[in-house]
């Protein structure tokens, strides 16, 4: 049973050595080690947090970018559409203006032509009347100078009048 009997000296030295070991290691080993571990864990945790944060920010940025692009696209489409509309409208306006101007031109031309025509007709009428008068004058002049032919004319006239 000697094995089961604790020796006094061993207990004494064990207490001394072990307690000293606990205090020395606590001060010079465990404290720095545990602090180091905690610090590193904190650092890793913060790095992980930062990564998550960065990822979220990146996602936000990306979403922003996409929104911007979409907005830009929409603006571009709108501008193009508006430009096209404006162009179309301008063309239509120009066409209309051209058409009305042409119409007016044609009207004017017609008016002028009509006026000219009427003027021409009036002058022609006047000329023809004058001419006819002159002719008649001349004929009368000649006829009256020649007695025979005067008589003949009267006869002719009388003959036709007789028929009536």
């Amino acid at each position: 049973m000697a094995l089961l009997t604790p020796a006094l000296g061993l207990i004494f030295w064990m207490l001394v050595v072990f307690l000293l070991l606990v205090f020395i290691l606590r001060a010079y080993a465990w404290k720095p080690i545990i602090n180091g571990l905690n610090d590193r864990e904190k650092e890793i945790q913060s790095a992980l947090d930062l990564a998550v944060e960065t990822r979220a920010e990146m996602a936000k940025l990306q979403a922003n970018n996409e929104k911007l692009v979409a907005e830009a696209n929409a603006a571009r489409d709108r501008i193009i559409r508006e430009a096209k509309e404006a162009a179309d409208r301008m063309i239509a306006d120009a066409k209309e203006a051209a058409a009305t101007a042409g119409q007016r031109e044609i009207e004017n031309a017609r008016e002028t032509i009509r006026n000219e025509q009427q003027a021409a007709i009036a002058t022609m009428r006047k000329e023809v009347a004058t001419l006819s008068l002159q002719i008649a004058e001349k004929v009368l002049h000649r006829e009256l100078s020649d007695k025979a032919s005067q008589e003949k004319l009267i006869a002719d006239l009388a003959a036709t009048a007789n028929l009536n």
Partner: peptide, 25 residues
């Protein structure tokens, strides 16, 4: 209160532990 074989071995182990963990620290 002799430094017996066990005490000597225990002190040796304490020294080993101190060397190891202070260097690790």
């Amino acid at each position: 209160l002799s430094i017996t074989k066990n005490v000597a071995s225990m002190i040796l182990s304490a020294i080993i532990l101190m060397l190891i963990f202070i260097s690790v620290a």
